[in-house]
Nucleic acid binder design. Sequence first.
DNA 1: ATACAGTACCTCGTAGTACGAGGTAGTGAG
DNA 2: CTCACTACCTCGTACTACGAGGTACTGTAT
Lengths: 112, 112
Amino acid sequence: MKYGRELLKGNTDHLLLSLIGQEPIYGYQLIKEIGKRSGGYFQFKEGTLYTALHRLEREGLIEGKWERLSNGQERRYYYLTKTGRRVLDEKRDEWRGFSAAVNLVTERANTG
Amino acid sequence: MKYGRELLKGNTDHLLLSLIGQEPIYGYQLIKEIGKRSGGYFQFKEGTLYTALHRLEREGLIEGKWERLSNGQERRYYYLTKTGRRVLDEKRDEWRGFSAAVNLVTERANTG
DNA sequence: ATACAGTACCTCGTAGTACGAGGTAGTGAG
DNA sequence: CTCACTACCTCGTACTACGAGGTACTGTAT
C-alpha cells in the first residue's frame, strides 16, 4: 500500500531515533531495517535519510562515528545522545497523542 | 499537549474530508468542530484551513456553496463530492496502514 | 582483466504544505 | 460606539521528502 509523502513528515525523526535508540546503527542499514520492521511498508529514500541524519546530528540528538571494518571499509555508526533519548520520549508521546486525536476526529464520523 | 506542525501534513485532508463527509459544514465551523472532537488537541489555523479547502475544491473532492442565513449573512457550506467520498475512503485506509507501520517500527523497540 | 550488482556515503534543487500576519466585512452586546 | 466575535480571504516563509545525480569500494561471475 502506498502512502502520500507528506504523511511521513514529522514522523521521520521519530522512526530514526527509535531504531538508533535500540542499538548503534549506520545509515544504509537503517533503510533496510525500517523496511523490514514495517513489513516493507516504509522504503526510505537516501535523500530523505541522510538529510535527516545530518539534521539530527546538527541538533545534537545523535552522534555519528566512523568505524572501520576488518576489511578496511568504513561505515558511519550513529549513537543516541542523552538529549536524543529525551526527545525520543517526547516524540513517542507526541505520536500517541496525535494519532489518538486523529482517530477521535475521523472515527466519530461513524459512531455519531 | 503540543504537536509539531509537520505531523499534521498529510492528515489535514483526511480530517477535513471526514467531517465534511458527515454533513455539509462551513469553514469556520470546521475549526471549532475539529477542536471540539479532538478534545482541544487540534486548533486549525485559518491560513491552513482555507488554503486546504480551496485546494480540495480545485481537485473536485468537495464543492462549496454560498448560503444566505435569515439575517442576510452568507456562509460557504462545503459538500463532499462522489470523488471526495472515494478519496476519503482511500485516506482512511492510508492512515490505518501508515499508523500501524509507525507502531510496528517504534514499538518493536521495546519488545525486542 | 572486465563487467556488473550491491553496499555505503553524499549533495542539490524542487515541490508541497502548515502557519503567521495581514486584510475585509458583518453582527451583537455593553 | 467600541469591542469581541463570526466568517471569509491572501501572501510569504520555513520546513522537509524525494528524485536525480555523484563518488568509491567489494564481491562475483565471465
